[in-house]
Design a binder for these strands. Structure first.
Lengths: 120, 120
DNA sequence: TGAACATATGAACAACCGTTCATATGTAAG
DNA sequence: CTTACATATGAACGGTTGTTCATATGTTCA
């Protein structure tokens, strides 16, 4: 028999309550899901993706990345701040220049899983 | 000696030309990068992520997902359309209901790579 | 110190995104 | 045919995002 949950956001009948309960228990908690979504969102922009790809191949300064991607220094710098705050890259200062590199190996792994999907 | 690229979008000096050339050759072409960014963007929203996680555990109809996530049927339906167009889920009609499931195994792999990153 | 350069940052703006609301489509049962 | 239900969809709205422009910070060198 179908059960009506009657919560205030969804008034439709719940058709498969047992399945829902089972899935509900497996579902990671909201915070973890938000973190994961935030991670994917960070990778969800071509500029950031190209920056990360480049840094994965070599340590580069802001000016290098700017030239490599053919974009303004400002745009790159803003994105680097984003990536730094997301802990996806780290920076090292050397004189006037700041060199960036990936902050950990996980990023590379996620990259490759994604590439497999796109290539197929 | 430093080379000035002098293209119209970046007028700063290129400091490490050889490194840039090397990275430039490895860089996947723009279309592929855009596709990959689009894939990550699809995963970059908590609602879509939770839908995908749920479908990964069980085939569900729209109404089930709506109840499971505590969100309106309309919001879920819009997101499902998004996911269907991104070829991340497929649908199967059975009477009045439409059942959704993941469209391929790659999504699961990308998921897990991401979870590893977040958990650590 | 002052000029030149590398990088960072704040404001502003257009484009995009996720949800809501109202309503349409499609199916099953009476 | 009519009602009830499951899903889909278009318009609209507020919030977010990526870039640009102008400018600030910090470093090196003369």
């Amino acid at each position: 028999m179908n059960v009506n949950t009657n919560d205030d956001r969804c008034s439709v009948n719940v058709i498969h309550e047992e399945v829902i309960d089972r899935v509900s228990q497996k579902m990671p908690d909201g915070d973890k899901m938000n973190d994961l979504a935030q991670l994917y969102k960070s990778l969800g922009d071509p500029t950031r993706l190209r920056i990360l790809f480049a840094l994965n191949a070599a340590e580069l300064c802001v000016c290098d990345i700017s030239a490599l991607l053919g974009m303004t220094q400002s745009a790159i710098s803003h994105q680097l701040r984003f990536l730094r705050q997301a802990r996806l890259v780290k920076s090292r200062k050397e004189g006037k220049m700041v060199f960036y590199s990936p902050s950990d190996r996980h990023v590379t792994e996620i990259f490759e899983a994604g590439l497999d999907h796109v290539i197929e």
